[in-house]
Amino acid sequence: MATPSVSSFCFVILLCSAAAEALEGGLSVELIHRDSPKSPFYDPSETPFQRAEKAVRRSIACVRDLRSNDEGEPSADISRIDGEYLINITIGTPPVSMMTIADTGSDLIWTQCQPCDVCFPQVAPLFNPRASSTYEQVHCVSDKCHLYDKTFCNTEGFTCQYSAVYGDQSHSEGNISTDIIELTTLSGSPEPVPFPGMAFGCGIKNDGLFSIHATGIVGLSAGKASLVSQIGGYLSRLFAYCLVPFFSTSKYTSKLTFGFDAQLTGPGIVTTPLILKSPRQYYYLTLEGISVNGKKFMVSGSSGPGAVTGNMVIDSGTTLTWLPSNLYGQIVQAVSAAISLPRAKDPIAGYGL
């Protein structure tokens, strides 16, 4: 399989707010693709095709997990566990390193904690809140208890607890807590950037299809509990992620940038509006149509009076682009008619060809 040219895909989100004092310029952290040599998931024995095949199968599983409500929109409690990109954060004092899944489709930050009633196996030690001098449990009356919409009150200790259930019935339950979360920047600075008082889930009942290499999830959605929203007071709630090609062997790395440095301007920059709906768990785009060989195929209901906006979800946990079945069928027919070659057998049996 040929290696694509080294170009980057960049995605920028601006969430307007009255920002507090911002860090100058912002900061960038490394996004680690799960199949890169820097990832704990990396298997050097796999071929590029095998990695691509696994990515396709993860995407298929992801789409199957997206349940719909009566209005045809993804339900609020659905998010993908087995994401494509990882982010390394530290929690506590002294700081404990966590390899977590970066997820634009959920808002809660959580990790497994001691003492754990039910925990899935993980390679790294569990976070011990008693060993952190800056750790605090959140009380029910605290505003931080209501950042996440799946919380309830423990009447015995009057502490805030959460319950997160995912599409494949994997789940995490535990205490909403606060502590210092630090991000290591790509600027070359040896000192990570600390964000004190960050709300996160300290999971003590976690089970399901979790990997041993990841310790939890960092939500990047527009929800109030997400990393983006919580550090927005420092960094103006502006962030971007730029992804190097899937099979790139260049020195460049994918990165996640927060703050004013995330603004992309200049020649060749093309933008399209992001649509935020309630609940603010997903970022949506409006796909109007796709052109093949000069012929445009419109998405039903995306134009004209009463047009539906925000009919596609941006998801960092999915490799492939998925289309409505009727539109996909038209695109396949148009591409087949434009290419005078025998149709090849689908080597992965996942593309619907």
Rank of each mutant, 00 (worst) to 15 (best):
F120C: 00
L227R: 13
T272G: 05
Y148E: 09
T271E: 08
A124R: 11
S187T: 13
F152H: 12
F49N: 03
F260E: 15
L220S: 06
I180W: 01
V6Q: 10
K277L: 13
C140K: 00
P94N: 02
T318R: 02
F158K: 10
A214D: 07
I180D: 08
M198H: 04
V335T: 08
A102P: 07
S28Y: 11
C242W: 03
I204A: 05
G72D: 00
C116T: 03
F120R: 05
S248W: 05
R51A: 11
D315T: 03
A214F: 06
I275R: 01
S336N: 13
M1F: 10
D168I: 02
K277H: 05
A222W: 01
G310P: 09
F247N: 14
M1Y: 12
N175I: 12
E46H: 05
P44C: 11
N175K: 09
G208D: 06
A55M: 07
D103I: 11
Y162I: 00
P4G: 08
L285Q: 00
I101Q: 10
R64M: 08
D261Y: 09
S5G: 10
L126K: 12
G304I: 03
S97E: 14
A334M: 07
T185S: 15
P129L: 07
G167W: 04
E73L: 15
C160Y: 10
T257R: 06
D82S: 14
Y42C: 05
I348G: 00
D107E: 08
R57G: 01
V12W: 08
I81S: 08
R280T: 10
T286C: 02
V308P: 00
E288H: 10
K295L: 06
L327M: 10
C153Q: 03
C140S: 04
A22C: 12
G310I: 01
A349F: 12
Y148K: 01
V270C: 01
S229G: 04
S133T: 15
L27Y: 13
E288D: 07
D35G: 02
G92F: 08
H139K: 13
C242Y: 09
M98S: 14
L227I: 15
Y282N: 02
Q114F: 07
L323Q: 02
R58W: 00
V218W: 09
A20R: 14
A102W: 08
L264F: 03
I13T: 13
D315R: 07
A262E: 05
P324R: 09
Q122T: 14
I275E: 01
V118L: 13
G167M: 04
I87C: 08
P95V: 02
K296A: 11
G310V: 00
E73T: 15
L227T: 14
E136K: 15
V335S: 06
F200K: 09
W322Y: 14
G105T: 05
S302N: 01
F49Q: 12
